[in-house]
Simulated assay, not measured.
Amino acid sequence: MISIEGLSKQFRTDNKTITAVDQLTLDIKEGEIFGVIGYSGAGKSTFIRLLNRLEEPSGGRITIDNQEITKLKANQLRLARQEIGMIFQHFNLLWSRTVKDNIIFPLEIAGVPKAEREKRVKELIDLVGLTERENAYPSQLSGGQKQRVGIARALANNPKVLLCDEATSALDPETTNSILDLLVSINEKLGLTIILITHEMHVIRKICNQVAVMEEGKIVEQGDVLDVFLHPKQTVTKKFVEQVMGSNEEDDSVTHLINTYNQGKIVRLHFVGETTNQALISMVAKKFTIDINILQGKITQTQRGAYGNLFVQLLGEADEVNAATYFIRDETSVELEVIRDAD
């Protein structure tokens, strides 16, 4: 769907040349929600603006749906951009226009007949959950509602690709989740390819299938979101994973648990992927005559399933505790590691 080869962007000042995007190569599949994450200055916002040539590349090629965007002349580019919607961090709405008129604006520019415009706007208002707000002005809307207008406007011309540049970073956590849920719904209903730029790993975790990590204009790590969570290779990626999972102080944590809980067997349960049995603890407690104490841990969800660790204490007769341990290892998808065996 999207092929990017050797993409570069330099900004020249009086004294030096700054490379914002450096020989970036990437392939994005049709219908995918693809996340690009990086800290400020990593080059991610420049990268997404290069995709629809809001910024002109210094080198490289961008091909979207078999059309090489980097070769298009002005008139051709104008038509191509109708198939590439974009939403922004600060909404970029027309403040003198109502919700309806903001959404209708790109349809007017595209020369869509009035009757067709009216029908399309109604569909979009319903799609993004703004029914009965079509006559409100942006100043009368909440942040989440403004972003819903931005999403509807970006979808007006039935694009094949939706670019999201820090689309939730100006929103509170609850509103962020509602917007992310909306993007997932749009992806599923319309089969839209979504590229999402962010500096927040929980956004990637919640909705993305694939993720690329940017640093100093380069992609330093890339892969399936769950795989990146499980096996982060670069220091910057590990820091992002810690945003969701917490600081990696596991060795100290294990020592503390061993010293604090001096009875029974302590095990670490490692949850990975979509086959994880969410009812594991209650199932084991019913199946075996043991007591199970959850000591600590953190489980989070990705699009592919659960990921995380849970430390539990197993108390009871040795045979029952051992039988429960073997059951978890052999009969479930949860990985088990014995931290301290029973006394």
Rank of each mutant, 00 (worst) to 15 (best):
residue 119 K to P: 02
residue 119 K to T: 13
residue 119 K to I: 09
residue 119 K to E: 14
residue 120 R to D: 08
residue 121 V to T: 08
residue 122 K to L: 15
residue 123 E to L: 09
residue 124 L to T: 00
residue 124 L to C: 04
residue 126 D to W: 01
residue 127 L to C: 07
residue 127 L to M: 14
residue 129 G to I: 02
residue 131 T to D: 14
residue 132 E to Y: 14
residue 132 E to D: 15
residue 133 R to E: 09
residue 134 E to G: 10
residue 134 E to D: 12
residue 135 N to E: 12
residue 135 N to I: 06
residue 135 N to M: 15
residue 135 N to R: 13
residue 135 N to Y: 15
residue 135 N to G: 13
residue 136 A to M: 11
residue 136 A to T: 06
residue 136 A to N: 12
residue 136 A to Q: 10
residue 138 P to E: 04
residue 138 P to L: 05
residue 138 P to T: 01
residue 139 S to D: 11
residue 139 S to I: 13
residue 140 Q to M: 11
residue 140 Q to E: 15
residue 142 S to I: 05
residue 142 S to H: 08
residue 143 G to Y: 01
residue 143 G to M: 02
residue 144 G to T: 02
residue 145 Q to S: 02
residue 145 Q to W: 03
residue 147 Q to T: 03
residue 147 Q to C: 04
residue 147 Q to L: 05
residue 148 R to N: 05
residue 148 R to A: 05
residue 148 R to M: 08
residue 149 V to S: 00
residue 150 G to K: 00
residue 151 I to H: 00
residue 151 I to P: 00
residue 152 A to M: 08
residue 153 R to T: 03
residue 154 A to N: 04
residue 156 A to S: 14
residue 156 A to C: 11
residue 157 N to A: 04
residue 158 N to D: 15
residue 158 N to F: 09
residue 159 P to G: 02
residue 159 P to D: 02
residue 160 K to S: 13
residue 160 K to V: 04
residue 160 K to G: 15
residue 162 L to W: 03
residue 163 L to D: 06
residue 163 L to E: 06
residue 163 L to N: 05
residue 164 C to L: 10
residue 165 D to H: 06
residue 165 D to F: 03
residue 166 E to S: 05
residue 166 E to G: 03
residue 167 A to V: 12
residue 168 T to I: 07
residue 168 T to H: 08
residue 168 T to W: 06
residue 169 S to E: 09
residue 169 S to D: 09
residue 170 A to C: 15
residue 171 L to W: 09
residue 171 L to F: 12
residue 172 D to S: 09
residue 172 D to R: 09
residue 172 D to Q: 10
residue 173 P to D: 14
residue 173 P to H: 10
residue 173 P to Q: 13
residue 174 E to R: 13
residue 174 E to N: 11
residue 175 T to G: 04
residue 175 T to A: 08
residue 176 T to R: 11
residue 176 T to L: 07
residue 176 T to S: 15
residue 177 N to P: 04
residue 178 S to K: 11
residue 178 S to L: 15
residue 179 I to R: 03
residue 179 I to C: 06
residue 179 I to V: 12
residue 180 L to G: 04
residue 180 L to K: 04
residue 180 L to T: 04
residue 180 L to A: 08
residue 181 D to R: 14
residue 181 D to S: 13
residue 182 L to H: 07
residue 182 L to W: 07
residue 183 L to D: 02
residue 183 L to G: 01
residue 184 V to G: 05
residue 186 I to W: 03
residue 187 N to L: 15
residue 187 N to A: 10
residue 187 N to E: 12
residue 188 E to N: 15
residue 188 E to F: 02
